[in-house]
Amino acid sequence: MELLLSSAIGMLTAAGVYLILRRRSFAVVLGMTMLSYAINLFLFSTGRLVVNAPPILRDGATAYTDPLPQALVLTAIVISFGMTAVVVMMALGAFLEGGDDRVDMPRADRLPADSLSGNRMSGDGDA
């Protein structure tokens, strides 16, 4: 069982990482969703796997699974929804404002290599 879960975590991570390395915002959002699954499962698994022993107190029950990782993951699931929502909104905003959904800065806006050694001061430039 441990092998199944860890391979699933690995698979979800790999898919997530591959997708966040794509160049379009939607793929990145999907990748982050995948990574959220992987990380939530991983966090959950740190409590070790137990079958049929939910952390709900009952008379006669002898063993319970570790409730703490579950509590942590529960909030993480909800927060990851919040994060996804914000990122989706930003992706949508970028698409509507900029006309495309690329995540990379357009090549023309990137710094040309030869200006890197020039003087670029932070602050308001009067230093």
Partner: peptide, 21 residues
Amino acid sequence: DAFIATLTGLGFGALAYAIMR
């Protein structure tokens, strides 16, 4: 990218496995 992703996935999966065992 696929190589990096596979590497990350293998690492993370192995870590999860090691912890669970």
